[in-house]
Design a protein around this nucleic acid. Structure first.
Lengths: 329, 329
DNA sequence: CTGTTAGCGCCTTCAC
DNA sequence: GTGAAGGCGCTAACAG
């Protein structure tokens, strides 16, 4: 493997000149530049990143810590982050915390060891609760999950508003006994719960929410129980795609037709939601855009560490399908 | 940030002893070890990875290059790889090639720059065609995609057999005009196509396959065309979950009921396949296990670069659901 | 079992 | 515009 001194010798210049050319610095004569470039090509020289990182004290690496990689929402986020990062000549270390605060803490520690340039994080509830940007030696941008109290760069959906609109949509369609099943382990679930409560209260309706761990199994179990009691709810609403899957499975197992016997709606416009007839009404999130905005914000923060704290809020889009149709309509 | 010499001073030993303790080497007295550990704790010392990597010429990093991160199959693979890697104190750099050979080549180049310890790769067809392990300065384990000719460590499904069994199952159920829609851009699609052909030929039936790019849109378009002609096929079979999604969408748009009007089956036991009534018959892949086996194989190869080339083949499991039921049954 | 020392490959001042 | 030289923080001989 050729090194910088080999290139210097081959080009008949000093290592300093080679370094300057490689870094794209100005102040190198065109003649020298060309000779270096030729030598680089001839020797197939590639700078040693470990050496460069040691010397320059920068890694050009960003850490992405997602809470659940199996959730297509986060898959799409990571796709966006990765695309943008490599465009900016940065590396991505992907970590999946599996909704486990300990694993998450471990990974945040690892990020410190790796001396990353910055981190994009979708925090679990405990981590978010005590999150202070100053606790970390690198800039952090929160994605998907952030609350009002937390002063941090963040990119999130308008969770409260979206949940409000989704609930209001069901109320408009004549549904009254609307049960909201939400993930208690994330800020997102809580905020969407809040939007639901506001919508119900505004319309003078009784709230009937149930918090569950954000897994398909937990959601299915909860829904099965809900629909086995009487009176049957008019509608079930899920706070995210994972829970929506559990609800749909439960309704199917209970042989309950929607919207005829019970209405259904939720978050995340996953491919299967329009496949299950007559289609499930959802709030669609701009997932790729959220990821893209997160890394853009992070890159800005890396470049300008003193800039003011920013929050980017994106709007969820209501996609109306058959599952929320009018009662008996 | 404390460095090794600070720890050495604090503990009253040499930097070599600190280094030895940090590396978990034997041949350090218990007393020294304890003093070092105390000093490490007191100073909150963390070794500088860049320095370590430069000096030791090892990165303890593995590259994972998947062809499409949006495919849940690869999501699960990466989950497994990540879990195992961190257990072995290794880092993972995740790259999504998006089925683009150029992007894939770029990433393989990047792996070289990063001086990774090894790579797990699900290659595109062109890359696989000219794949030679000796072309890379690091060990490579192929996952999901490999062909007979390629001499490389690999972990794959029994693609031909699984497709054979799936097709034979449909034939047994009385279906005759079975159309196989497969991804032409992957070795997996080709091999599954082969299994289909063998099954049809064995039963004296005419093969009716159609190759498409492995996208939902392409599959939907192809299927829409197929079902608009006459006679209608008896059954549609997809070579993977992405294509199966496209087929399902097309049948739904065409208002064709399965299995009454047309049967349906495919690969990948995705959650939605049992949600779409009456459930879709699929070959289930042991995705997590495939990923786990891949990294285990890679770690072995890293430890024993001379060991013989290995191929791990895992069996797909037929999950029978309503979509493949008997004609008119 | 422990310490001394020479680099790993590169960047970056500093002098010319 | 160019070159010489001193580290970045750590590991691994080697010597004791």
């Amino acid at each position: 493997m050729a090194q910088i001194k080999d290139v210097a010798r081959q080009a008949g210049v000093s290592v300093a000149s080679v370094s300057r050319v490689m870094a794209g610095h100005t102040g190198v004569s065109e003649a020298t530049r060309q000779r270096v470039l030729d030598a680089v090509q001839a020797l197939d020289y590639r700078p040693d990143l470990a050496a460069r990182r040691l010397r320059s004290r920068r890694t050009d690496t960003i850490g992405l810590i997602v809470s659940d990689i199996r959730n297509p929402f986060f898959t799409e986020i990571s796709r966006a982050v990765e695309d943008m990062a490599y465009q900016h000549r940065m590396r991505v270390i992907l970590c999946n915390a599996d909704e486990d605060p300990e694993k998450e803490a471990l990974y945040l520690d690892l990020m410190r060891d790796e001396n990353v340039s910055g981190v994009i994080l979708s925090p679990t509830l405990p981590t978010l609760a005590r999150f202070r940007a100053s606790d970390y030696p690198f800039p952090v941008v929160l994605v998907d999950r952030c609350d009002r109290e937390t002063a941090a760069d963040a990119v999130v959906l308008d969770n409260v508003d979206s949940a409000y609109r989704l609930t209001a949509h069901l109320i408009e369609r004549g549904h009254r006994r609307i049960v909201f099943i939400y993930g208690v382990t994330s800020a997102t679930g809580r905020q969407r719960h809040e939007g639901y409560i506001t919508a119900m209260a505004t319309h003078g309706l009784e709230t009937l929410a149930k918090g569950v761990p954000a897994t398909v199994d937990a959601a299915r179990t909860a829904a099965t129980e809900l629909v086995s009691g009487r009176p049957l709810p008019d509608a079930l609403v899920a706070s995210n795609g994972i829970i929506l899957l559990g609800l749909t499975e439960a309704l199917q197992e209970a042989r309950l037709r929607f919207p005829q016997q019970i209405a259904l709606a939720g978050f995340d416009n996953l491919p299967w939601t329009r496949l299950v007839e007559p289609g499930i009404t959802v709030i669609s999130q701009p997932t790729y855009d959220l990821g893209q905005a997160a890394i853009e914000l992070l890159l800005q923060r890396i470049a300008h560490s003193a800039q003011s704290v920013r929050r980017v809020v994106m709007r969820g889009e209501l996609i109306e399908r058959g599952s929320s149709a009018k009662r008996g309509g």
